[in-house]
Design a protein around this nucleic acid. Sequence first.
DNA 1: AATGAAATTGTATAAAT
DNA 2: ATTTATACAATTTCATT
Lengths: 147, 147
Amino acid sequence: MNIDNLNWKILKCLQQNARQSNAEIGRQVGVSSPAVSERIKKMEDLGVIQGYNTLISPFEIGYQLKAIITMRAFMGKLKPFLEKVKTYDEIVNCYRITGDENFVMEVVLKNQKHLELFIDQLIVYGETKTQIVLSHVVKQKELKPII
Amino acid sequence: MNIDNLNWKILKCLQQNARQSNAEIGRQVGVSSPAVSERIKKMEDLGVIQGYNTLISPFEIGYQLKAIITMRAFMGKLKPFLEKVKTYDEIVNCYRITGDENFVMEVVLKNQKHLELFIDQLIVYGETKTQIVLSHVVKQKELKPII
DNA sequence: AATGAAATTGTATAAAT
DNA sequence: ATTTATACAATTTCATT
């Protein structure tokens, strides 16, 4: 899809605050609200916009620990893990990657005990490496047009 | 903050689609729209809700590559990198982590050449390890209440 | 802390350019 | 593809419980 300047402005608004009204976006980008509405709908239909999320502070709702867990699946366990991975509430994001390791996951946990129990579940599928998150230095940075 | 059952239901709705109206959420959870509005506002003020994002497909807008880059900062380069990291448009997320390595980043890139140029910028600050993302197996999974 | 009602604002649709 | 007009829906504010 060719994303023109106006669509980029709309995407910028939506990335900053997805809950803004179309009328408010229209005011910021200089078109009417039906124009905004139609362009957003088209970008949704074409898969440019994949959804609207709410960012929740894991800490505030009781998840005291965040970790990055990298996993190298055991022989024959990659496919079973691909099925299982969707069922873990702890895994917020999981990427399949190239290299020695097969998966990198962003996980949220209540405490150390929860981490231990969670790793115990993973080691059925592969060898894991756990890195505890100290801080979120760059958070869901907005995507910009490619020059 | 103590998040009661009703707030959890509201958060569930907002996580599924942040652009739903308060009236629509109210219908789903069984309260009036001013009640939804007030509870959302309180959760925003208390930092439980940190914002509303739009999920954009990097591929559709011309970022053909996604990578996970892990970095071990050189002596004396950790603090300078903490300043610099916010300025890179390629870095969508960056976590500071425990262990041998200091940062793990999720980056979006146009192509291989862009990746090469980007890594050239990073190696001023530290030693990097790049893992190319093959697929996004679990995508921004919704946070659930802790039992 | 939630509701109901009134005023304001936003959305959706259709007709026109 | 966008605007304007219009009918309908949602939001905000506030009095009430």
